[in-house]
Write a protein that binds this DNA or RNA. Structure first.
Lengths: 202, 202
DNA sequence: TAGATAATGAACATCATGTTCATTTTCAAT
DNA sequence: ATTGAAAATGAACATGATGTTCATTATCTA
């Protein structure tokens, strides 16, 4: 079958472009990268790029999609490395920290400082959805909490992203487990007193 | 004296450019703005812009400097509106929330989502310095805290910026005092258990 | 009124973007 | 091995933003 081979050829080109992008993000930051930089790095012709992607952002988005696939695959391993998926104790934050530990390069390029705004605009809603689903279980409907529910959730998600980014930008000086524990220590009691609930703090 | 008049003329031009920039940031976000946009909005000639600023970023930085001047002036009013400067209870976060309330436009353009990365790179160190000075007083040297001091401080400052940004982007649905209280509720207990100290929570 | 300084806008060189197209490479099918 | 379809190529091009230059005009002080 031709299709398989052709696909492989296309995938190879795309991977070259994606790898070049990731490497360049680490070197000079996303904003400073030009399409020509990517082409030079990947040793590909100009029109090749536009054959696969609309523009620089489109390539970045496809790298982000790649990250999502990897993460979701990682998550779907029932208990591969992770005894972290036992229903009641499942914590999306720990899953992210763990996965990031194994996918240093991709995570650092996308979520580190040098990744830039575009990624953040994709990342926030993605993590937000995951966390919200998780949090919904714990948050009561109480109207008279000390802090508006919306603000507390935003705080919680932003704190996680802040710490993940910090960790990656500092070359992961602590284990994923320690980072998650730090995250929980910093946010959980505030989150609890804000909403008048108690999340289990492992 | 000639200087006064000339200065006034220059200042007028600069203000036109700055105002145009701020308005455009609110409309389309900093990244999407072109120098020509600013010129059209301000009704000025192309070369006039480059007579005053090196590039778009230079103009933005000067707006940021303007913000700092305003804030420092606001802070130096011994007790203008604020009984918020009584030494022991002084809180930089409340000062910011209050000042932002009175300078909605400038703050929203600079610190809101649409302000972009450049401002954040200026803003973080600025707020960081202010807060650190404030925090130093409370943080002991203890080496065996639950969370590395560096991480806790980063968390604290980032949380503040996150909430300030959220507040501005949502058109300040709460008073400055309420926002500061929210900020303290969300962060202080975590910060305390992280470092094993107790900040006074007004 | 004269002299100095600021503002102007047209023209220009440079650079990145995204498109087009004729040509070449690659590979599966025969 | 040959062929034909899909993919890769790179030169050429149009467009639009950037930042500079300069001769001219406007503005204000002395």
């Amino acid at each position: 079958m031709r299709e398989n081979k052709t696909d492989r050829r296309i995938q190879r080109t795309r991977r070259l472009l994606g790898d070049a992008l990731l490497a360049l993000i680490e070197e000079k930051g996303y904003a400073a990268i030009t399409v020509q930089d990517i082409l030079d790095r990947a040793n590909l012709g100009r029109s090749t790029f536009y054959m696969h992607y609309r523009d620089k952002d489109d390539l970045l988005v496809s790298e982000f999609d790649h990250f999502k696939e990897l993460f979701e695959h990682f998550e779907s391993q029932p208990s591969a490395k992770g005894r972290h998926l036992q229903s009641s104790e499942y914590s999306p934050s720990l899953a992210f920290f763990r996965h990031a530990g194994g996918q240093h390069r991709l995570y650092k390029a996308l979520m580190g400082k040098r990744g830039g705004e575009t990624v953040h605009k994709l990342l926030y809603p993605y993590i937000s959805d995951l966390m919200k689903t998780h949090l919904e279980k714990f948050i009561p409907d109480s109207k008279n909490s000390a802090v508006p529910r919306e603000v507390a959730i935003h705080f919680f998600i932003s704190s996680f992203l802040t710490l993940l980014t910090w960790w990656l930008d500092h070359d992961m000086p602590y284990t994923a487990e320690r980072m998650d524990q730090i995250f929980q220590t910093l946010t959980l009691s505030g989150f609890n007193s804000a909403l008048g609930i108690r999340l289990t703090h492992r």
